[in-house]
Computed example of a mutant assay.
Amino acid sequence: MTGPRPVCVNGAEIAGLPARPVPLDELGAVLVAEECTQAVRDAAWAYLITRARTERGTWTVACVGLALPVLLSVATALTKGFRGDKHDIHADVLTGFLQWLNEVDLDRPAILARLRWAAFRHGYLALREALDAPLLTEELDELSARSARFRSAPPQRLGGHPEALLMAAVATVSSPSRRPP
Rank of each mutant, 00 (worst) to 15 (best):
N102G: 12
R20N: 09
P23N: 09
F97D: 01
A145L: 13
L140T: 13
A43H: 03
G11L: 02
K86V: 14
R51G: 06
S144L: 14
A119G: 00
S175T: 09
S147T: 10
R157E: 15
T76F: 08
L166V: 15
M1D: 13
K86R: 15
P4W: 13
A75G: 07
F82S: 03
R51H: 11
A119M: 02
F120A: 02
A130N: 00
L140P: 01
F120N: 04
P23L: 03
L31E: 00
P155W: 09
T76A: 14
W100Y: 15
A110Q: 07
A110H: 09
L68I: 01
R108E: 14
L101W: 00
S147W: 12
T50V: 00
V74S: 05
I14C: 03
L125Q: 12
V30T: 13
A110F: 15
V61M: 12
Q38F: 10
P6Q: 06
D92P: 01
G16M: 02
A44N: 01
C36P: 05
L115Y: 08
L98R: 15
V70F: 09
A113W: 13
V70L: 08
E142C: 00
A91S: 11
A62W: 02
P181Q: 02
G159M: 08
P21C: 03
H87C: 03
